[in-house]
Design a binder for these strands. Sequence first.
RNA 1: GGCGGCUUAGCCAAGUGGUAAGGCGACGGUCUGCAAAACCGUUAUUCAGCGGUUCGAACCCGCUAGCCGCCUCCA
Length: 473
Amino acid sequence: MVIKLYNTMTRKKEEFIPLKPNQAGIYACGPTVYNYAHIGNLRTYVFEDTLRRMFHYNGFALSHVMNITDVDDKTIRDSQKEGMSLKGFTEKYTKIFLDDCAALNIQQPDILCKATEHIPDMISLVQRLSDKGYAYKSGDGATYFNIAKFQGYGKLSGIDLSGLKAGARVASDEYEKESLSDFALWKTWDQKDGEVFWDSPFGKGRPGWHIECSAMSTKYLGDTFDIHAGAVDLIFPHHENEIAQTEAATGKPWVRCWMHAEHLLVDGGKMSKSLNNFYRVADLKEKGYDPLAYRYFCFTGHYRSQLNFTWESLTAAQRALENLRAEIAKLRSSEGGKLGTDPTPEGEKMGSSEDKDITGWKDKFLSAINDDLNLPQAIAVLWDTVKSSDLSSAQKLALIGDYDRVLGLNLLESKKDSGLPAEVEQLLRKRQEARTAKDWAGSDAIRGQILALGYVVEDGKGGQTVREKKFGE
RNA sequence: GGCGGCUUAGCCAAGUGGUAAGGCGACGGUCUGCAAAACCGUUAUUCAGCGGUUCGAACCCGCUAGCCGCCUCCA
């Protein structure tokens, strides 16, 4: 089936045609590891994860590369503030970032590359630019890219350089550049950098911000590759500058499709520390939310739309996920346990005659995700499947397992049946006694005690049953 | 000032020319000692407002209002 993706460069949804059949090379801008990632950052990585999973679902082989920016102004500044070495400092935040990703079931890219481990690659790229006349050294020793020499600057962002002079933020104080728009390829060491520097033909210093992405993406994916992804704020100047320096160096078209995720808003506005609406995965956990509820929440809006985060909407997502799990548990029990924990682990054993009913459903799901990753639509297909009256429980479970290869919500992961706490068991016995004696007040009081322990008692025809309480119950 | 985007029920949101997906919530019914769960049913004659194109528009065009983002190191 055709895959359509929106390309920021052309501002259109286009059929995705890979450079090599059934293979895709993807470069995704990763984090600068100087602080904790917030949920807005993570939205972008959830998006990239679904992109990755969508390709796998379509049977593509993937080279998915992500960088870790572990040297820049902020990492240097804040590592000094925390009294740590740059390496120790960035490793700390890299680990936290990866843990957060794991909590959201974001799969690791095939190649995770650190800027500091690719300095020679960057130096040789700057050298090439220098040899071709695109770079110049300013009075302070830093090496800059000369934008005036590059045809087509601004083609991604649509920015008009002549209008930039009226811009609000133009830092003209720091360095001596020929043009305000020129950007650093190699920065000169200064005292504030302390121990952090590398020797290079351009002097002692460190790479500019953009050069790492050009150097590492072409190293691992070639001079031209399929997709470059990131969040919208990177369109300008980061990606614009990357294009300039990469295409200037190679003389070839670089990225075939640019994909950008929109921002997460909080209470209708930008997340900011001063508004105290700067949330981390740890904050969600602390409030009792399942991190995967945040993943589900991300799927309720399209990646190219701003999505408004509120606690109310996260709660809705949490409840929806719990309801989904409850439905799945019912499907399982109606299968009488004859299935294992995962009826079709790969979801690929379809196609046998009895499963022909489900290919129509699979097509619906595939159409949704192949249409520029329409996850809200895919979620709707999931619910329609769960509620369909035309499918058997086994078929539904097979489909859910299949969809979940893309959704990554661990829908078929069976909860370890850890059993009830002894305290709850005891209360249940006491409550049963009270009920036999028709002591309703006593029975209700014990129900309250059990609820306080996190369990809900329900009285059905076969007596009382317990389940874990739902969020907010 | 320049550029881009958004406005769909109480909330979160799909749909982008053929007559309003899905989730959450709410309400009514069945059941229950009461609840809960479950099941059944209800919940936008209408898509910010006005005008235009069209046999037909939430979807295309114009204007108005409101909101958001970017304009040199922010995902």
